[in-house]
């Protein structure tokens, strides 16, 4: 499944300062492709994209406090959070909230 993942608000520093990643993620149980949820994607991101300090990205099996997750420009709270089912060409944005000014 082709997805575009974007990191912002400083989270890009955890993946070699690259903000936009075009990725191909498939979720299989045995040989069979199954639906990919945000929970699966987070585990994939942690394994494949996060190069340092994973605790700055995740806490438990979700994102750490202060990270907004947007699926197709929409807060993942509105689509089921970890249970959100992803589809081909979805754009997922991870953004750390800023406090400075």
């Amino acid at each position: 499944m082709q997805l575009t993942l974007e990191f912002g608000g400083g989270l890009e520093l955890l993946c070699n300062s690259v903000k936009i990643h075009s990725v191909d993620v498939d979720h299989k149980v045995g040989e069979e492709k199954v639906q990919l949820t945000m929970k699966d994607l987070l585990a994939w991101v942690r394994k494949n994209l996060i190069k340092e300090r994973p605790e700055m990205f995740m806490k438990g099996d979700s994102v750490r406090p202060g990270v907004l997750v947007l699926v197709n420009d929409c807060d993942w709270e509105l689509s089921g959070q970890l249970d959100t089912i992803l589809e081909e060409k979805d754009v997922v944005v991870f953004i750390s909230t800023l406090h400075g000014g």
């Binding site: 700055m56 750490r64 406090p65 202060g66 750390s96």
Partner: peptide, 13 residues
């Protein structure tokens, strides 16, 4: 939006 505060190390200044 942010019920739990972020870790202090995540707060850039």
């Amino acid at each position: 939006l942010f019920p739990t505060p972020p870790p202090t190390t995540a707060c850039q200044r």
